[in-house]
């Protein structure tokens, strides 16, 4: 395949990858952040102690984390159909991507929040702060650099997952590499997609590091 033929395909695949990753990242943040907060606050000695609830939540998160993404993707096909009405395409791929990334991100959120000084939380309690205010004004702002770092790692993981989603018709760069690079033995396409993926990951990681550093006032 020559370059003129490849370029539009490459552009489309890159667009699909970015679209899948962007949508999945947004949804992962929306669901993963509260989940991570709950994992911390429901602790014995946390803001809203609920050890039984926390145990169940932790188990669910661990199940999500222990499934290889490719298995999870296939296993949730009925759910994907329920939500999006289809199992093929970029939008359908967002469902397993989000399901795979939420527990992952939630654990990273949990770790970041646990890094917040206990004395600072107590100081807020001693001032008579509501629990929601402690989450919103203490836990989240104080752990923001860690949260950004966690989200960055999650995006990189999502880029990796998104290549697998290509295998069930999600499209994207992974799909391109498999169909052209592997099945048609087109080494050129293979190299280009690999390089593109590396560039995207490097860019995301560098940007994330930069933002996290800027936010860190310690």
């Amino acid at each position: 395949m020559n370059f003129e033929e490849l370029l539009p395909i490459l552009a489309q695949s890159t667009g699909e990858t970015l679209q899948m990753v962007a949508m999945a990242t947004l949804l992962t943040a929306v669901f993963g952040l509260p989940l991570g907060v709950l994992l911390v606050t429901a602790d014995r000695g946390g803001l809203t102690p609920a050890p039984a609830f926390k145990a169940v939540l932790g188990a669910v998160v661990n199940i999500g984390r222990s499934l290889p993404f490719i298995v999870l993707m296939v296993a949730v096909i009925p759910f994907t159909r329920l939500v999006t009405g289809t199992t093929i395409g970029t939008v359908a791929a967002v469902v397993p991507l989000t399901l795979g990334a939420v527990p992952f991100f939630a654990r990273l959120v949990e770790t970041a929040l646990r890094g917040v000084d206990r004395e600072v939380v107590e100081a807020a309690q001693a001032m008579g702060a509501r629990r929601l205010a402690i989450v919103g004004k203490v836990l989240l702002p104080e752990s923001l650099p860690g949260l950004v770092a966690g989200l960055t790692v999650t995006i990189v993981a999502l880029i990796g997952y998104s290549a697998m989603a290509g295998a069930i018709g999600g499209g994207g760069l992974g799909d391109l590499a498999v169909r052209y690079g592997y099945q048609r033995f087109d080494t050129g396409v293979m190299i280009i997609t690999v390089v593109l993926l590396i560039v995207i990951v490097q860019f995301v990681q560098s940007l994330g590091d930069l933002v996290a550093r800027r936010l860190d006032k310690k």
Binding site: D117, E119, Q125, A126, M127, G128, L215
Partner: peptide, 22 residues
């Protein structure tokens, strides 16, 4: 009520307990 009462009691801490992000 306890929250309201706590607002009338100031506290200072050994390691200051300041918000590092503010």
């Amino acid at each position: 009520e306890l929250r309201a009462a706590r607002q009338r009691i100031g506290m200072i801490h050994q390691h200051f307990a300041l918000l590092s992000s503010r």
